[in-house]
């Protein structure tokens, strides 16, 4: 078993369709793997290559492409190295195989992703239990189409006499005014 991440990926490339490989820095490698191979690939990294620590899992919403990109951040304690495994899933068919059997705390991440993005992980323990939100019946709030400002304006009123300025406009006009030749 090699500890060199590039050799590991080369070795695994014979069995898996790995793409978009990028060495972000000496201790972080990014790569993408097809959805259907993802869990087996992650299992291989954990059991065969010593990436035994799941630092976190999360999702990036690419609403314009209709894709959710799941990120599994794995760590090898011996090599002091991280691999970020990316998996694209369809934004309209948000289902992904669960990894709760690989790491116990993955179930909590999956519960959160179900609540915040609407992604389902069949078989994951307590998946439908509320995580942070209670009785939420809107679209999952971390999806990019969920507009927090509109949601707040529909439900809450501004306090009378309160003036709100856009911070960016305020900075432009007051703190960093741009002077032209005509000034």
């Amino acid at each position: 078993m090699s500890n060199d991440p590039k050799s590991i990926i080369e070795e695994l490339s014979d069995h898996y369709q790995i793409s978009e490989i990028k060495e972000q820095k000496a201790d972080l490698l990014l790569l993408k793997i097809p959805k259907e191979d993802a869990v087996q690939f992650i299992r291989e990294l954990r059991d065969g290559q010593n990436y035994t620590h799941l630092a976190f899992m999360t999702v990036i919403d690419y609403i314009e492409s209709g894709i959710f990109t799941l990120t599994y951040m794995l760590h090898n304690y011996a090599a002091h190295h991280n691999i970020a495994v990316h998996v694209d899933i369809d934004r309209e068919q948000t289902e992904m195989e669960s990894i709760h059997e690989l790491w116990v705390h993955a179930a909590t991440y999956q519960r959160e992703l179900r609540e915040m993005y609407g992604i389902r992980f069949p078989g994951s323990p307590r998946l439908d239990d509320d995580f942070c939100l209670e009785g939420w019946d809107e679209i999952p709030p971390m999806r990019r189409e969920f507009d927090t400002v509109s949601y707040s304006r529909e439900r809450f009123f501004d306090r009378e006499g309160r003036i709100t300025t856009d911070p960016r406009e305020h900075m432009k006009q007051i703190m960093y005014p741009i002077h032209t030749d005509n000034d």
Partner: peptide
């Protein structure tokens, strides 16, 4: 585009 904060208390 995205920020995720990883804290040890999560687990």
């Amino acid at each position: 585009r995205r920020v995720h904060v990883r804290g040890p208390s999560y687990t």
